[in-house]
Design a protein around this nucleic acid. Sequence first.
DNA 1: AACAAATAAGTAAAATTATATCTATAAAAA
DNA 2: TTTTTATAGATATAATTTTACTTATTTGTT
Lengths: 209, 209
Amino acid sequence: MGSISKHTLQRLPTYLAYLKSLPCADNACISAAAIAAALELGEVQVRKDLSAVGSAGKPRIGYPVNDLIQHLEYFLGYSTRNRAVLVGVGNLGLALLSYGGFADYGLDIVGAFDSNPALIGLQIDGRPVLSMDELPTFCQRENVQIGILAVPSAAAQPCCDALIAGGVRAVWNFAPVHLKAPDGVLIQRENMASSLALLSYHLKQPERN
Amino acid sequence: MGSISKHTLQRLPTYLAYLKSLPCADNACISAAAIAAALELGEVQVRKDLSAVGSAGKPRIGYPVNDLIQHLEYFLGYSTRNRAVLVGVGNLGLALLSYGGFADYGLDIVGAFDSNPALIGLQIDGRPVLSMDELPTFCQRENVQIGILAVPSAAAQPCCDALIAGGVRAVWNFAPVHLKAPDGVLIQRENMASSLALLSYHLKQPERN
DNA sequence: AACAAATAAGTAAAATTATATCTATAAAAA
DNA sequence: TTTTTATAGATATAATTTTACTTATTTGTT
Ligand SMILES: NC(=O)c1ccc[n+]([C@@H]2O[C@H](COP(=O)([O-])OP(=O)(O)OC[C@H]3O[C@@H](n4cnc5c(N)ncnc54)[C@H](O)[C@@H]3O)[C@@H](O)[C@H]2O)c1
Ligand SMILES: NC(=O)c1ccc[n+]([C@@H]2O[C@H](COP(=O)([O-])OP(=O)(O)OC[C@H]3O[C@@H](n4cnc5c(N)ncnc54)[C@H](O)[C@@H]3O)[C@@H](O)[C@H]2O)c1
């Protein structure tokens, strides 16, 4: 990563979502302490995170909410659109395709792909479901930078390779497998099994945490 | 957490999935180095993680694959069933309900809830969709320990409270909000916005990582 | 059968990274 | 002007990962 730490980066969307949920008086300000209390974080951590995105607060005043939102959105790239394709239009893939919220994060899913002939030719909220053969050329032509993988584990690596062949530089993988990719391509795994492990482990603990 | 670190705990399911994907000769063994290479981790880290679950390997031999799988499954509680309910049978909720894979992780979704009357009374793969009114009593009667939240952000906190009122001790939250819960209740957020932030940030970098 | 070489696990220490505490400074309000 | 309150920077603590080193076991060789 660049200069910002991964953990900080992962917290930023949470700040943003919280700020956006606030009743918005136009010139309202908020203190780092208030943000920290709402999100159950340390207030120093909040300040450090916010200073990393280039926001400065004023003593006794705090941070101007609207400025902060703009800074965060700019830093997270929500204003610059990222074009993505989805591979695997199954249960999960369909949910992701139908989800309107991604647009808020600057993510535009412009097409979907599946190996199942029954699905090919469908339109889902205006996005076409295409054959896997068309994937690399489509990605190149449409200038797609992000691939979203919602295929079974066994199909994940070949699909990932196809995305990379199409010029995709970042892959969001929902399948429970580790994928290999060349340097310069980021594989981000949405690891639900890890989340479940934490839940399950917590339940096994007698009465702690 | 107990004695094991959170990061270690999160890696364990990945080891398990990898080991299970291996062509299984019955008494086969695998070295920490081989696991590390496959998952692109440090080999010492693999050894430390595996020793944390109580597995011991033999020099020159490695770890017996089947034993390791059993150790991991036991440690992660995949053998002891966890009963869960889903709240919010929308796009995402339906995908989660329909997903067969959770059973492998010891998670049994035994019921679903929604505020939309049109959905109440449906059966999805044998699980009933019930009214929100019934949530607390259902959870208590059915001994539900885990709640899965797939409702809109605005509804998340009240739904979470209802789950906790029903005796749920761990909540898996897919809504992009921070939830508050009393001590002893774990809130695990599946933070897709964070994942997207990492992807988006990576794409903004000139040509690094 | 004994011994050396090779391989892999286990342990300890160092370095990195992340978080928390503390002090100083600056701005607003009394 | 003084007091209060909040940020910014420096320092300290804690957690995690990496590096280095030691120990143990098998395999091959004499
Ligand atoms: N559904 C969930 O809630 C959920 C949760 C966690 C993880 N996942 C993971 O997400 C992935 C998808 O899950 P799902 O429930 O949507 O599965 P699914 O079986 O419903 O959908 C998979 C889709 O991928 C398509 N597909 C299969 N092989 C393909 C290939 N080689 N190329 C292109 N498309 C192909 C299938 O036609 C199908 O449409 C799986 O890896 C699963 O483990 C799903
Ligand atoms: N769909 C996705 O791919 C996706 C991805 C990331 C995050 N999310 C998040 O997951 C949540 C659900 O997303 P979705 O796309 O399934 O939304 P959705 O609108 O399709 O489904 C929401 C469901 O919740 C129900 N609901 C609303 N208020 C409720 C209440 N007070 N009590 C009980 N049920 C209630 C609705 O009736 C509906 O069935 C949202 O918070 C969303 O931000 C979804």
